[in-house]
Amino acid sequence: MPPGDDVVLRVENLVKHFPLKGRIPFTSGGVVKAVDGVSFDLRRGETLGVVGESGCGKSTLARMLVGLEQPTSGAVRFGESVVHTAKGRELRALRRRIQIVLQDPYTSLNPRRTIREILLQPFEIHPDVLDRRRRIDRIRDLLDLVGLDPDLHLDRYPHQFSGGQRQRIGIARALALQPDVIVCDEPVSALDVSVQAQVVNLLERLQEELGVAYVFIAHDLSVVRHISDRVAVMYLGKLVETGPEASLYDTPRHPYTSALLSAVPVPEPAGRGQRQRILLAGDPPSPVDPPSGCRFRTRCWQATETCATTEPPLAAGVHPVACHFPLAA
């Protein structure tokens, strides 16, 4: 079924398993279930936040969305095309429409190229997008758009910029071909606190002006709340809860979401000691051998036998939750 009019990206039951080598040569050591059945719709011009702890599979998800990683099963649909089966002309067209901004602004820009060369590269790969003579004007506009000075910065190298400026360049590069979707994988986590807000505000302004949709992947729950329209919470390769930003943060229904939110320190010393904090025991289990039934049950304070035997599904709806005993709203 092709996605509806306002759905720009449809993710259907996406799975990525990485095989492990065994101790004995030529044997298998099992699989890392990095992403294990993730589905969602991304609507035109909206921001979907994806939160989760390290190892929950959020970066693998990001790489599959843009076609950098081949899924074990499932599909990413963009219009009539499927990201991982498209070939030739169709694939090139797809790559134009879905772009990515990476976490580390220090390693995601080629140190031997000037900003001019870095920003012209997308047009060399997709020469039919824009006439050669108009490209310089376009990249000057792009730099202007992300708050850099084309006259000053065009012929500099990445090392001559601060972390925040480099992230702006990465964003300008992602915008060059006027995509419909930008996947942002931890775009502000490497930046200083005082610079994070600049980049967050820039992403919001660009969305207003250009109508691009974001998949915003981050571990920082506060930043995700600020920028997202809808939020998906990931645990051990699965989505456990999705919902509109306000509803999910104010009335979390999955115990994991609730614990995650309560662990975030609030910058208000007055309320210290009065806030209810759910301290989860231990670390997330290994994705090689996830718990049976509900994957969160080993750290959940209200788990029962049902949770060990039956896996709770993530139903459809506005604010679905994958839990047998969701918290009261």
Partner: peptide, 16 residues
């Protein structure tokens, strides 16, 4: 400039 997890602010102040 710090976003909050317990409420949503419209615009963040950004130190230039």
């Amino acid at each position: 400039s710090m976003p909050r997890v317990d409420r949503r602010d419209d615009v963040l102040y950004a130190i230039p």
